[in-house]
Each structure stands twice: as structure tokens, then as C-alpha cells.
Amino acid sequence: MSASKLNPLQPRTPLPSQVVKDDEGALVAAAKAGDINAFETLVGRYERKIFRLAQNITQNKEDAEDVMQEAFLKSYQHLGEFQGNSRFYTWLVRIAVNQALMKLRKRRPNQVSLDEEVDTGEDTMPREVEDWGPSPEERYKQAELGGILSSTIAELEPPFRIVFQLRDIEELSTEETAEALGLSVPAVKSRLLRARLKLRQKLNRYFRQGENS
């Protein structure tokens, strides 16, 4: 194995946001003024992402459907309160997360306390240290990779997978994530670090060098 192609010193290139399109503000303004078609365009644009978010959090298809419907309806009802000082998508995500957490707590009342002290101890330290093979995105078909990712994130406990979902999938900032979940910034950071390391460890079994897809 060659270490030379590893390039951890290279700064992480900013990822182009796949979400925001330039006309988002105009669509929101039109929807606020009562244009239902504009609102439907926004729904069409974000429905897949909101459904995935709801599924990743609730781990239940029926609940995820309810969450998505409620999130879009609530966002329409409260559109007048949307100030436009954040992205519409970020605001929508916060509504969806609240709905999803309510569902999750209803199903598993004893299991979902986001703000309780979590053990960020020793089991976070990487155990298997192996280089990954060629880019996983080239090795797996999109649908197959999507399946790997959703089953991997499902293995995390709720406090970790929800923070990871907001921060690294929906691309909310640390502060936005903290606000949406009622957590402190340090709590978000420690859960996020743990989530990232756990996911890395779990993905290892698919992506390590020599692993055949």
C-alpha cells in the first residue's frame, strides 16, 4: 500500500452546496404572497432530502412520511414568520427535525434524551487503521452507496446520528445545529466528533483497500 496518495494535509475543499439555488428567495417571497405553485416548487426541490432526514432520524418509513407532510404543511402555515435571515432550507430542516424528534420520543420514550451526558470516552479511539481503496463513490453504484450510508447511520444512537445528520448531511453550522437541538456548542462538537469517528470505523468494512464490492 502506498502512503503517498494519502493527502491529509490538503485542506478540505469546500463542498458546493447541492441545496440552495439562487431563486430560493424569490420562490419563498412568491409563496408568502400566496403563490401555491411557488410553494410546490420548493416542495419538489426538497422533498427527497426532507424524507431522507426524517427516515434517518425516525428509522421508520411511516413516521418519516408523516414527518415530511407535517413539516411542509407547518412551513406553509408559518411562512409569514420566516424572517429570511437564514436559508429557507435551514428553517425547513429545523421544523422537520422537531417533528421527527416528537415521533421518535413517542416510539422510544426512554431512549431519546439528546442533552444527557454521553460517554465520549475510549471506544472512540480508532481501532482498525487501514487505508481505503479507490474512491468509494467510484466503486459503488449510487443506489448501492446510498444503501450503505443509510444502514451505517442507522447503527448510531440517536444523539450521534441526529447531530451528524444536521451538521454533515444537511450542512447546518455548529451553532445552527446547537440551536435546533437545544444543545450547547461544546455538546454538539463532542457528539459530532464521536459520530464521525464511529461512522469512519463502520464504513471501513466496505471501503478498505482490497475489499471487493
Partner: peptide, 9 residues
């Protein structure tokens, strides 16, 4: 990056 870039189904 893999999670961040992944397209929802």
C-alpha cells in the same frame, strides 16, 4: 465528504 455529497433517493 461521502455523506455530504450523497444524493437522496
Amino acid at each position: 465528504q461521502i455523506f455530504c455529497n450523497s444524493e437522496p433517493a
